[in-house]
């Protein structure tokens, strides 16, 4: 049934543009991997973009090439801790609610306004990643809402070498969600045991290496012919703990070494993201200090 609270548009089926004699050869030039396997794409992170929320952050990951299409744009707001509704039963802990939603314009296919199962799944993963980080008994009887809006989630089809892999895209989004939510929680001043950050690593095979698989950090799906396995972790660096682990792929079950190596690489990626996170927060603190100092001077 049509959603009567929104403007639904034409009754008939509309379709996104289909391009004639589309030649992927031209696009391939931009998608040759330009960075070493053990480096991340550039991350831009900023806190405090939604002043009316308790905490907020914006994260952007650049695309494979700096002037090409970009990779990921996320916006996160945190509301709370605030009192729960009267009807909710007593809880000695903070109730954490996570909500991940793709904007209608975030992906190649236009998304609807209602959350679908993949978005709910991302929300659950994000909650798992964060629940272990927040000191939940510091705020009893209260709730924290964490809302992540994905403004740009995956890459345009024309840049792909192989077939697009939804799984790696989802992992990249999740890793970004974890990092941006962590920044927003810190911005909101909610007590945490550590700064959590997300990291993704993948086992890829490409023709140039004659099919020999190798590990890459922060994989951009467009850069690789085939992604054999992917792993996304939420990692606490100072406690050396993983709060959420998501592994996906086709590796031999006997080869546990491969699996541990992949997790290790993902942890390494997470450490990289964590550095950016800590730097951003430090910057935010010094800036806030400068501003309050400035306003004090004006008062005098």
């Amino acid at each position: 049934m049509a959603d009567r609270r929104r403007i639904n548009g034409p009754v008939g089926v509309t379709s996104p543009p289909v391009y004639a004699n589309h030649t992927p050869g031209k696009a391939q030039k931009d998608t040759v991997q330009q960075r070493p396997d053990n480096t991340l794409r550039q991350i831009f992170l900023k806190t405090g973009i939604t002043p009316s929320a308790s905490g907020s952050a914006y994260l952007e990951v650049t695309g494979p090439s700096t002037n090409g299409p970009s990779g990921l744009k996320l916006n996160c707001t945190v509301h709370g801790p605030r009192s729960l509704a009267k009807s909710t039963p007593f809880t000695p802990y903070t109730t954490l609610t996570t909500h991940v939603k793709y904007a209608p314009f975030a992906t190649r296919q236009r998304r609807g306004y209602l959350r679908d199962s993949s978005e709910k799944d991302l929300g659950v993963h994000l909650e798992t990643a964060l629940r272990g980080v927040i000191i939940a008994d510091r705020w009893p009887k209260s709730g924290v809402d964490i809302i992540v809006t994905v403004l740009e989630g995956d890459q345009p089809r024309e840049v792909f070498k192989g077939t697009p892999d939804e799984g790696i895209d989802a992992m990249n989004v999740l890793s970004g969600c974890i990092t941006v939510a962590s920044a927003a929680i810190a911005d909101a001043g909610i007590d945490c045991v550590d700064m959590v950050a997300g990291g993704v690593a993948a086992l890829v095979a490409s023709e140039e290496d004659k099919g020999e698989p190798r590990f890459v950090l922060d994989p951009a799906p467009s850069e690789h012919d085939k992604i054999l396995a992917g792993c996304c972790v939420a990692y606490l660096p100072s406690r050396d703990e993983i709060t959420n682990l998501w592994y996906k792929g086709q590796t031999s079950g006997n080869d546990t070494l491969l699996y541990t190596q992949l997790v290790e690489k993902a942890v390494q990626a997470s450490r990289g993201a964590n550095k950016v996170l800590v730097d951003t927060l430090k910057e935010g603190v010094t800036e806030a200090g400068k501003q309050s100092k400035g306003s004090m001077e004006v008062d005098r």
Binding site: R6, A53, N75, T77, V78, I147, T149
Partner: peptide, 10 residues
């Protein structure tokens, strides 16, 4: 369509 419910305000 306008989407306000992104936590844009409490």
């Amino acid at each position: 369509n306008i989407e306000l419910a992104t936590g844009s305000a409490p």
